[in-house]
Nucleic acid binder design. Structure first.
Lengths: 200, 200
DNA sequence: CGCCACGTGCATACCTGGTATACATACTGA
DNA sequence: TCAGTATGTATACCAGGTATGCACGTGGCG
């Protein structure tokens, strides 16, 4: 319910209209996940249906304003107050993929892991570059990029962990070439220097 | 598309029917995210519509079997081969919440962070307990629990990071009570001892 | 001037993920 | 015998997400 609650939180600050809500949401969260306008209108409709927001008429330019009702404001504050549980998170597609790959016939789990690690390390580079160029402008955006960096680093660690467990668990039953040489991505080690850079 | 592709991957191993697919999926991934049966049937319908699976008739007990078509098998292998990008991941509700909280009037971002950290550390304890009791049974399940542990640890680190940035960025403009005393959760420090325990 | 592209703003259709529920059958135990 | 439970299939409904259509205004350009 992150979009619904996010829009509700924005409306709790001040009344607004669809297009501007989208702009505000993207400005605060940094266009990391671009928000489709259509999503805003359907969400506003549902919020109005549930009595959390109400229409506040149009202004001179024809913008359809919505404002938070009392119940809506309470729910927005409640959303901030309630921590998100680990249980109500979406499924981790990568975890599922690896879990299925370790047993799937015709699929080399180690190759899947290596390919994924390359991809993740690559996006990690992009993220640090992004962080370097984009300055202090918007606090929320910086924090979100940091969140993705932390998650990507954890992902790399986990992939290493998976590889170690698989290698130890089934020490190459078919062929005996424990070091595939060429396409094996190098050990991370130089993944990021997050601790220092961020707080300067 | 994790469910769709996951079911396709299972069918690529061998033909099966709805209820058993759900059981297999949960067995491999560890019932971490319990999969609703209804989801399986709607997904099977869509896969059949798209020509990736085909009905293979019923057996003596009346089980409606599905089998992978050629195209479906190719797509399943393709799913394993293609790494998941950072871009096509679902929005991180927690990141959005924090990003909006830092500016929202009437919301103390630091309190939100502290509450969340308590929650995350708590679930981290649950996860390590889970890992300790559940033995080596299923490889995939162990890896998925590990993935959640790594993510939760990264989340705690990120929350600390957020707190530090907020404290340095806005050194208590309104009220001057930098230490709220009682309900402030203690520093983590004893979060987990993942490095050693996992590989024993 | 007329037209075209573009930004802004609203609305809808459609797909997937996710949950609940209905419904049927078979086994099991009080 | 009847209730409860496990197995199995199917459908309805909601929310998230994307694409698209439609309208309006403005500014450029032949």
């Amino acid at each position: 319910m992150s979009i619904r609650d996010g829009i509700l939180a924005l409306l709790q600050e001040r009344p607004s209209y669809g297009y501007r809500l989208r702009a505000e949401f993207e400005q605060r969260t940094g266009a990391t996940w671009p928000l489709n306008v259509g999503q805003v209108y359907t969400t506003l409709g549902r919020l109005e249906r549930d009595g959390l927001v109400e229409s506040a008429g149009e202004d001179a330019e024809g913008h359809v304003y919505y404002r938070c009702t009392e119940g809506g404001g309470a729910q927005a504050l409640d959303w901030f107050r309630t921590p998100v549980s680990r249980l109500d998170r979406p499924r981790d597609e990568l975890a599922i993929k690896i879990a299925l790959a370790v047993r799937a016939p015709g699929v080399e789990a180690l190759e899947v892991i290596q390919r994924q690690r390359s991809e993740t390390i690559s996006s990690l580079r992009d993220l640090t570059a992004l962080k370097r160029q984009g300055g202090e402008e918007e606090v929320g955006w910086t924090l979100i990029v940091d969140a993705m960096v932390f998650q990507a680093e954890a992902e790399v660690s986990w992939l290493d962990h998976c590889e170690a467990r698989i290698r130890s668990g089934l020490p190459d039953p078919g062929s005996n070439e424990p070091d595939r040489g060429g396409d094996v991505s190098p050990r991370p080690a130089a993944v990021a220097e997050r601790g220092g850079k961020t707080d300067e």
